[in-house]
Computed example of a mutant assay.
Amino acid sequence: MKDAPTGKTLKTKKPATDWEALRNMNATEIRAGIDSDLDAQATDDNFWSDAEVVMPKPKQVVTIRLDADLLDWFRKENGYQTRINAILRAYMKANDHRTGHNPSP
Rank of each mutant, 00 (worst) to 15 (best):
N102I: 14
E77P: 03
N46L: 06
P56Q: 01
N102D: 11
D3T: 11
L66P: 00
P5Q: 02
D50G: 11
N95L: 03
T43M: 15
N24K: 15
A4T: 06
F47Y: 15
D35Y: 08
I30M: 15
I64H: 01
T43H: 15
I34T: 12
A94S: 08
R89N: 06
V54P: 00
E20I: 03
P5L: 07
L88G: 05
D18Q: 02
A27G: 09
R89A: 09
W48H: 07
K57D: 15
D96I: 13
I84H: 00
Q60R: 11
N24M: 09
E20M: 07
S36D: 10
I30G: 00
G79Q: 02
A21T: 07
T17D: 08
P56I: 02
N78D: 13
K8P: 02
N78G: 08
P58H: 07
T43A: 13
W48M: 09
D18F: 02
I30T: 10
T63L: 10
E77F: 12
D45V: 06
Y91E: 04
M92C: 12
R98I: 11
N24H: 06
I64T: 12
Q41P: 02
T63S: 13
R75N: 12
K59H: 10
D3P: 02
A90C: 05
Q41F: 14
A16S: 09
G79F: 01
G33R: 06
I84C: 01
Q41E: 15
N95H: 14
N102M: 04
R23Y: 04
R75S: 10
S49F: 05
R65K: 14
H97M: 05
K93N: 08
D37G: 04
F74P: 01
S104D: 12
N26V: 07
T99P: 00
A32T: 10
K11G: 06
G7E: 02
F47L: 03
E20Q: 12
R31P: 00
R89I: 03
N85R: 14
P5A: 05
M1A: 08
N85D: 14
N78T: 11
F74K: 00
E77V: 13
K13H: 07
G33E: 04
Q60A: 15
S36P: 01
M25R: 09
A40F: 15
L66I: 13
D67H: 12
N102Y: 05
M92K: 10
M92E: 10
T12H: 08
D50V: 08
T63N: 14
W19E: 04
N78V: 08
T43F: 14
D69Q: 08
L22E: 05
P56G: 01
D18N: 12
K76I: 06
L38D: 13
W48E: 07
Y91M: 07
D45H: 03
L66E: 01
I30V: 15
N95A: 03
